[in-house]
Every structure is written in structure tokens, then in C-alpha cells.
Design a protein around this nucleic acid. Structure first.
Length: 418
RNA sequence: GCUGUGAUGGUGUAGCGGUUAGCACGGUGGGUUGUGGUCCCGCCGGCCCGGGUUCAAGUCCCGGUCACGGCCCCA
């Protein structure tokens, strides 16, 4: 009876303080880069997500039929909803569209440490710009967030590559279109699956063992010169990545990023630069991930608009922050506790509380007949700064007694001066 | 889909065949105090469900339910 649905979390006030702190940092980073917040319903038509087979995200849909016999799903990610919103007002919205959101996203899967059935995923996206500057701006948002919560470039790294790398490699092997997207999903799992399994899955796409070797050797590359050697001087992937890293230097965030050809991403819709942030120690799952997806709208039946963005879950980052001791101790936020010392002063206490509240204080009025002992313990537990006591003699003189709980000082203050 | 561990007051836990089932937090009443934080005392409140073994079962066995991990897989 006291348990929620499997894989879901309750946020008690002490948990909520931390969540709000995290979300505040998300918001600050996005706002400082000129992004505006939006939201969409957590429930969407199932068909919004039933696209490329093979994507984990579609296999793990938290879906069901509603009372009107409609197939619906709790959103597994925000991007399709965002695409829907943008598409609905394409041509009206001034570009570039720079929006962010912190949606709760759902998936139906076996629960594990750090993997529930719901999580909050900070999403930051730019629509309507082809420029690499837009992609780098996203990296700047990320770095700004990391710095905001006290993380450094020694703690984590943003690994960057481009879908074009794989596109060129697979293109040389004669793979394109839907087969390309399907192959991306398989290649994304390469470092987690055995070579045999990968080879078998690639064989289903019509690829041979030699192709596997070619893919693996290219993805093992971790500097641009080697990539250039592998793909040739006229490679669009190489020039794109070179341009990207020039801009990264301009932002002064080069310490935070590294080229890594093995970054592919499991979603089929990416088309250009892709990236993931990982802890340097390599202990945790990816902290966030994103990239350019210029052709998503056409897959939803609309006219394409260039777009780039990332998703950033709340669970892995909290594990990293806890490991690093960066989660702050947060007080309740209550500043004053107001208590009437006797029952007949209750209405007086209410007027005192109202005055304090009007002056902008966060005031917790003791609502019932509680003893002083309780008030002090309550103040201690909630981290309040002052105890405001409405006492008979003082009240008769037009005063209340205020005790500063940190210094222990106490004084009578005229009600008019509150 | 496979697998391991665990379920004891409201919360977190100790107890491993016989205990008045212990402790901490909490709630509540009181002592001390300046109607006053610390401190001290009293009280409230518990063995997941169903079978079985035993003179005796939180404790051992079987089944169920739920929870938490791991594997598979991966936003």
C-alpha cells in the first residue's frame, strides 16, 4: 500500500531539495545560453515512437491502450514531442529555436542500480540552424552546467564524433539508407557485445567479416590525423570534426572534450556530430548524450529542419556527484518559526507571521498548541534561523521576542518593525 | 528471459530454535531550564502471507507475494 509502481521513485522533501538543486543548475546553464523552457504531455500517441526497429527505446516503450482504445505511450524521450511541437508551428516560429526542458521520461525494463523505469532527462535543443556553432553552443551549455555543480575536466570528458564518420565507412562498403541506420544501432553496441554477436548481427544486414574489421579499425581511431588518413583528405566527416574542434577552442572548453570515433549513439535519427559525456574513471554509464538530427521531421511526415540537441538524465549524474562529494547539504529553506506561547496569543501569532511573510521571510507558523521544547527541536531540524516567540508581557508592550538560533542572541522587537 | 539476496515497531536496524524480541530516530507525557535547543526518565508501536518440521519457529523447510542487486540488453 505504501509502495509505488515498480521502478518509480518518491521524492520526500529532503530528496526534493536535492532534485531542485540539480534542476536549478540545469536551468541556469540553459538560461545563461539563451534557451527557453517548454514542456509537453508525458503521454503521447504510441506511433510517435514506433519507427526504426532495433532501437532499444522502442522495445522498451511503457505503452498501453486507453479507455478510448487508443495506443498510447509514456514518453521514453523528449525529442519526438519536441519535433511534434516544432513541426506544428514550422514557418511561424522564428529560428533558431533554442529550447530546453526537464521532462520525466519512462521506459519498461528490468530495474537495476541507476536504472529505474522513470527518470528526469534535461533536454537542450537548437532547431533551424545548420551551423556547427549550434552544436558547440550545446557543449558550452554542458560545460557551464558541470562547472556550476563543481565538476572539473578531470572528473569527466565529453567524447565527440560524427555520424558522418560511420556514414563514409559504411558508404565505402555500399551501405546506406535504412540499412545504415540499422547498422548504427548495432555498431553502437560494439564495445559491449562480443565480436561474434556483432558480426552475426551485421551479417543480418548483409555485411561480411571484412566489413566488421574495417568498421572496428576505423572506430578505434582517437585522433583526427589518423581519421584523416583513414577516410581521405576530402572527407566531409574529417572537415566537419576539424571545424567543430576549432570552435571548441574558441569557447575555451577544449579540456573537456576529446575526439573518439567509437561514439555512435543508439538512436537512428542522428546525422552529424554526436557526443557523450563519461566519467574519466569509466565507472558509470554515459552521463549524457546527443548530437545533430537534421532529418527527424521527414521521418515523422513533415518537412525537415536542421536540429541538434542532447538528453541528460538525472540518475547517473547524481551518482557521480555523490562519488565526488559534490551534493550539498540543503536546509528546508524555512527562515522563521513563529510560536504563540499561550493559546490566547494564537491570533496575535498569525498577525506576526503575516507581517513577516509580507516582508519576504519564509515563515513556519506553529499551528497547534506545541511546547517550547518542540519549537526548538523543530527549528533545529528544519534549519530555521530565528524563533519568533509571541509572549504575554512582550505582546502587551507591542513586542515579540526573537531568538537568533545560530548566535543564541535574543531581543524584543516592536511588531511594527518586523 | 535467466539468476542471487533479503522481508522485524512509522523509519533504519540487532537478534540465527526457548529472550519480557534489543537499539537508534520518530510520536507522546514528564524532569532539568529563563514557558527554552543539549541532557535525563516514562509511555506508544513490530517479527510479509500460507503451509510444514519441532515439546518449542523472526529464527529451520516448502510455496506465494514484494523489494533490492547481478546477467542478458541498453537510454
Amino acid at each position: 500500500m505504501t509502495q509505488g509502481v515498480r521502478g518509480t521513485r518518491d521524492f520526500y522533501p529532503e530528496d526534493m531539495r536535492i532534485r531542485n538543486w540539480l534542476f536549478d543548475n540545469f536551468r541556469n546553464a540553459a538560461r545563461s545560453h539563451g534557451f527557453e523552457e517548454y514542456d509537453a504531455p508525458v503521454l503521447e500517441h504510441e506511433e510517435l515512437y514506433t519507427r526504426k526497429q532495433g532501437e532499444e527505446i522502442t522495445q522498451q516503450l511503457y505503452n498501453f491502450e486507453d479507455k478510448g482504445e487508443r495506443r498510447v505511450a509514456l514518453r521514453p524521450e523528449m525529442t519526438p514531442s519536441l519535433a511534434r511541437m516544432v513541426m506544428a508551428r514550422a514557418g511561424v516560429l522564428p529560428t533558431p529555436i533554442k529550447w530546453f526542458s526537464i521532462p520525466q521520461c519512462w521506459r519498461y525494463e528490468r530495474t537495476q542500480r541507476g536504472r529505474g523505469r522513470e527518470h528526469y532527462q534535461w533536454n537542450v535543443d537548437v532547431w533551424g540552424s545548420n551551423a556547427l556553432e549550434a552544436d558547440v553552443e550545446l557543449l558550452s551549455v554542458l560545460v557551464n552546467f558541470f562547472e556550476g555543480v563543481g565538476l572539473t575536466a578531470d572528473d569527466l570528458v565529453i567524447k565527440i564524433s560524427s555520424r558522418k564518420v560511420l556514414e563514409e565507412v559504411l558508404g565505402s562498403l555500399g551501405i546506406s539508407g535504412d540499412a545504415f541506420a540499422a547498422t548504427c544501432i548495432i555498431v553502437d553496441k560494439m564495445d559491449k557485445l562480443s565480436e561474434d554477436v556483432v558480426a552475426a548481427q551485421l551479417a543480418e544486414q548483409g555485411l561480411g567479416a571484412d566489413a566488421v574489421t574495417t568498421i572496428q579499425s576505423t572506430l578505434g581511431v582517437d585522433d583526427l590525423d589518423s581519421l584523416s588518413a583513414a577516410l581521405g583528405d576530402d572527407s566531409a566527416a574529417v572537415s566537419e570534426l576539424a571545424g567543430l574542434f576549432d570552435l571548441i577552442d574558441s569557447y575555451g572548453i577544449a579540456d573537456w572534450v576529446a575526439f573518439d570515433a567509437s561514439v555512435v549513439r543508439g538512436l537512428a535519427y542522428y546525422t552529424g556530430p554526436v557526443f557523450e559525456a563519461h566519467d574519466r574513471a569509466g565507472q558509470l554509464r554515459a552521463i549524457c548524450g546527443g548530437g545533430r538530427y537534421d532529418r527527424l521531421l521527414s521521418s515523422l511526415g513533415g518537412k525537415d529542419m536542421p536540429a541538434t540537441g542532447f538528453g541528460f538524465g538525472d540518475m547517473v549524474i547524481m551518482e557521480l556527484l555523490m562519488d565526488k562529494g559534490l551534493v550539498p547539504d540543503l536546509p528546508s529553506g524555512n527562515e522563521d518559526i513563529v510560536i504563540a506561547i499561550s493559546e490566547d496569543l494564537r491570533s496575535a501569532a498569525m498577525s506576526v507571521a503575516s507581517r513577516l511573510r509580507a516582508s519576504g521571510r519564509s515563515v513556519d507558523l506553529v499551528l497547534e498548541d506545541k511546547r517550547m521544547k518542540w519549537a526548538f527541536r523543530h527549528a533545529e531540524r528544519t534549519g530555521a534561523q530565528r524563533l519568533v516567540m509571541v509572549m504575554p508581557e512582550e505582546w502587551a508592550a507591542g513586542n515579540v521576542r526573537i531568538k537568533n538560533l545560530e548566535s543564541g542572541e535574543e531581543s524584543d522587537v516592536a511588531v511594527g518593525d518586523l
